[in-house]
């Protein structure tokens, strides 16, 4: 079932974003200090970095849920003007609507745009895509973490987004489920070649999945390093070259961590 849609690249140019400090309303903290990078159409890129470095902020900006203080955000050639079904977002918490069954949750992607009536026949396809036909009438409450996250993926994908933003989508899963889900997400990517931007804490996950890894450093958040993962798929997590990438990134983050401590 190949279902390639028109994917779009993303361009992030000199983005700054600051937030007010809760204790001192007059001052503000710079979360992103002039970030620039771009993602090619159909590319799978990971953002890795310590917590608080602005990864999620960046993702929210690209999703259109927040507005940057300055800089330019483009999807394809269009400026991002607000949230849109073209840019799907999946959080660490699946955030399924608990009052809807699995099937209704997946339909919600269509219903939100008001196209459910015309496209209802696609729902079965996406239920099958994530292997949840048997749970169509179950409520989210009854699903395991992995199943719930698959529903969330299907709900985002049913809109055929040009870009899929993933904010630590597998972060809450146990190690085994997580590795299985990594393969599932890759399978979805291979089917659809959607542009994906994956925020993760897990370095193995980033190496296993992405074409390219962007390493971010905090205070203010900026891209510190870019690493191309030129390994053939499917990747072997224990291969020498895989481990080389791993130690390279770990060393880099360790160094970045020390530098932050010294400056603090």
């Amino acid at each position: 079932m190949t279902n390639i849609v028109a994917a779009s690249g993303v361009r992030v140019h000199e983005i700054c974003k600051s937030f007010p400090v809760p204790d001192a309303p007059a001052t503000s903290r710079l979360a992103l200090g002039g970030i620039s990078f771009s993602i090619g159409a159909g590319e799978l890129v990971s953002l890795v970095g310590p917590s608080g470095c602005g990864k999620s902020t960046l993702l929210r900006l690209i999703a259109g849920l927040d507005v940057p203080d300055s800089g330019k955000l483009l999807v394809g050639n269009e400026k991002i003007a607000g949230p849109n079904a073209e840019r799907g977002l999946v959080f660490q918490d699946p955030n399924l609507f608990p009052w809807l069954t699995v099937r209704r949750n997946i339909e919600a992607g269509l219903a939100a745009r008001g196209v459910l009536r015309e496209k209802r026949n696609e729902v079965d396809e996406f239920m099958r895509l994530v292997g949840l036909e048997a749970f169509a009438n179950a409520y989210p409450h009854h699903l395991s973490g992995g199943m719930a996250q698959r529903v969330a993926l299907a709900r985002a994908l049913i809109n055929h987004p040009k870009v899929l933003l993933l904010d630590e989508p597998l972060g809450a899963l146990d190690a085994f489920t997580r590795m299985r889900m990594q393969d599932e997400v890759l399978r979805l990517w291979e089917n659809r070649r959607t542009t994906m931007l994956l925020v993760t804490h897990d370095i193995d996950e980033a190496i296993y999945m992405s074409h390219r890894i962007l390493i971010m450093t905090p205070a203010p958040g900026r891209i510190d390093r870019e690493i191309h993962i030129d390994l053939a798929r499917s990747r072997d997590r224990t291969s020498e070259s895989f481990l080389r990438f791993r130690s390279e990134i770990l060393e880099h983050l360790h160094f970045a961590g020390n530098a932050a401590d010294v400056s603090a």
């Binding site: 607000g82 949230p83 079904a85 799907g88 977002l89 609507f97 745009r113 709900r155 985002a156």
Partner: peptide, 13 residues
């Protein structure tokens, strides 16, 4: 807020 955020990224008005 995250329910509303999700719905917005699904294209909800």
């Amino acid at each position: 807020a995250s329910y509303l955020d999700v719905a917005r990224t699904l294209g909800a008005g």
